[in-house]
């Protein structure tokens, strides 16, 4: 057996360092952190150069090259805007989930892949971990990113690799229009962005007109539940402050989850049955269809289901803050809730 012979140190092992050095450890750690943070700020001052300085949706001031030829788009909603502005040829990379776990098809529907001519060679892995190597290899002059990318990754791209990143994450539907105008400014396609803005505002005006008519006539808004997923416990839906809820309000609908306390609550089967909405809109896409909802509680007992007023809609229309949400999603929802209305 190995022994520690303490005979040579009959006095207790003493540590003469005072307790104060613990404070030193913390102070050194804090000092190193402060120096690092200061260095990060200093580096930030020397970020990319270019002729145009803009403020993005996170309030960041970003200097971007005018009309960049090589752009990486990280977010399907931004890709929608870019495509509608005729800028597809500028795009050299898009977001995707880990190639070994789903790749491009995890972030983009088959229709989007075909329409936008996307390929796996354009993949920049944004989830579950952001892969900066793939981004650098594509040699982008500009990155347009939604908040599917962490701010830490964005700052790394900006500071370490000197690639400007514009964060586009509108908080409202009006923000979608503003973002399109911002893209028009960066790429020098102001006329295209004005046309798109006009089209978006026209649809929003039609929705407002419908709402005014209904209110003037004293016609109550139809009640509805929009669900994007369901399980044995109930129906996942949109609560206050979400784009899904905004779309419902614009379409002159009365969501049964309008007073929910959570942004994305799950309503129990009992709650839905008690509310018994006039319309039930279920989200589709990415492998989800009507049969997915068949096992949800009281599905077949709901009046909307029995009367044929349970209708499927692409989930993206409720979740992706992009022009398609307004140009396609909103008219489609108005048509479901107010068939025959002249405002559609």
């Amino acid at each position: 057996m190995h022994l520690y012979d303490l005979s040579s140190s009959s006095a207790p092992p003493r540590r003469t360092v005072p307790l104060a050095w613990f404070a030193v450890v913390v102070i050194v750690a804090a000092g190193v952190s402060v120096v690092g943070i200061a260095a990060s700020y200093a580096l930030r001052g020397g970020s990319s150069s270019g002729p145009l300085t803009i403020t993005d949706d996170l309030g960041r001031r970003v200097t971007v090259p005018l009309d960049p030829a090589r752009v990486v788009v990280l977010g399907p909603s931004i890709m929608d805007s870019v495509y509608r502005l005729g800028l597809r040829s500028h795009v050299v990379g898009v977001d995707c989930y880990a190639p070994a776990l789903g790749g491009l098809s995890s972030d983009y529907s088959a229709d989007q892949v075909a329409l936008w001519n996307l390929s796996s060679s354009m993949c920049v892995q944004t989830g579950p971990t952001f892969d900066v190597e793939q981004l650098i290899a594509l040699g982008p002059q500009l990155v347009l990113a939604a908040t599917i990318v962490s701010v830490a990754a964005v700052e790394q791209i900006t500071q370490t690799y000197q690639i400007p990143v514009v964060m586009l994450q509108p908080a409202t539907l009006t923000g979608v229009i503003l973002d399109d105008q911002l893209l028009g400014e960066i790429f020098g396609v102001s006329s295209a962005s004005s046309s798109l803005a006009n089209a978006l505002q026209t649809v929003l005006a039609q929705a407002a007109s419908l709402q005014n008519d209904l209110t003037a006539n004293g016609t109550p808004f139809p009640t509805l539940l929009v669900t994007y997923s369901a399980d044995g416990n109930g129906y996942w839906t949109f609560g206050p402050g979400t784009f899904g809820e905004s779309l419902i309000e614009l379409a002159s609908g009365a969501s049964i989850s309008a007073n929910a306390t959570l942004s994305y609550p799950e309503l129990s089967g009992e709650q839905v049955l008690a509310s018994d909405p006039q319309f039930l809109v279920y989200g589709t896409g990415f492998g989800i269809n009507e049969s997915t909802y068949a096992g949800a509680p009281f599905w077949s007992q709901l009046t909307a289901t029995q009367d044929g007023r349970a209708v499927g809609m692409d989930s993206n229309y409720f979740t992706e803050p992009d022009p398609t949400m307004i140009l396609v999603g909103l008219p489609q929802l108005m048509a479901i809730l107010h068939p025959g209305s002249s405002a559609q």
């Binding site: 057996m1 190995h2 022994l3 520690y4 012979d5 303490l6 005979s7 009959s10």
Partner: peptide, 9 residues
């Protein structure tokens, strides 16, 4: 007197 103490074996 010194002490010998068993340490981790």
């Amino acid at each position: 007197m010194g002490a010998s103490v068993a340490a981790p074996a």
